[in-house]
């Protein structure tokens, strides 16, 4: 079963780079089986359809915007918990939409999907580097990735 661990983010926008940082850390430290790929990308919207096609299982690491953020807080979401009614712009093609679109067009889309959503402190100001709260969340995120993989292996 081909699995993709996908770190989404933009390192130029502070905490929005968390997905990228996590993938780099995973590449450095972890020893995954050959059927598990690690990809980091700043692509947005529909371009992601090319990235996730042909994988059966997908773990996404990304930041999440909350009205009153608790930075570094990690939540595991299913597709059903993420917006699937489209937003006001194609800049915001959500994952459920990408997957639905991919399926409709006859592409092979992941069937098992988990989203690790990390609450960010600051994502609108240009600047490199994570906030301390989000940086500290990295080991916790890595553990969640491994937990999810173990859980899937069992099934």
């Amino acid at each position: 079963m081909k699995t993709l661990i996908l770190g989404l983010g933009n390192e130029l926008f502070g905490d929005d780079g968390i997905g990228i940082h996590v993938i780099r850390e995973l590449k450095r430290k972890s020893d995954f089986k050959s059927n598990i790929d690690l990809i980091e990308t700043s692509y947005s919207g529909l371009a992601l359809i090319d990235v996730i096609a042909d994988y059966e299982r997908l773990i996404i690491i990304d930041t999440i915007k909350k009205e009153k953020p608790n930075p570094g807080n990690i939540r595991i979401l299913d597709l059903s918990q993420v917006r699937h009614v489209p937003g006001p712009s194609p800049h915001y093609v959500s994952f459920p939409q990408i997957i639905a679109l991919g399926k409709k067009l006859g592409l092979k889309m992941p069937t098992l999907v988990k989203i690790i959503a990390v609450e960010a402190k600051n994502i609108y100001i240009l600047g490199e580097g994570l906030s301390p709260e989000v940086k500290c969340a990295i080991p916790g995120i890595i553990k969640k990735v491994k937990d999810i993989l173990t859980d899937w292996e069992r099934k």
Partner: peptide
């Protein structure tokens, strides 16, 4: 709209 950032829409 915040084309720069990736974040999921959250709530």
């Amino acid at each position: 709209h915040a084309c720069a950032t990736h974040s999921l829409p959250g709530d």
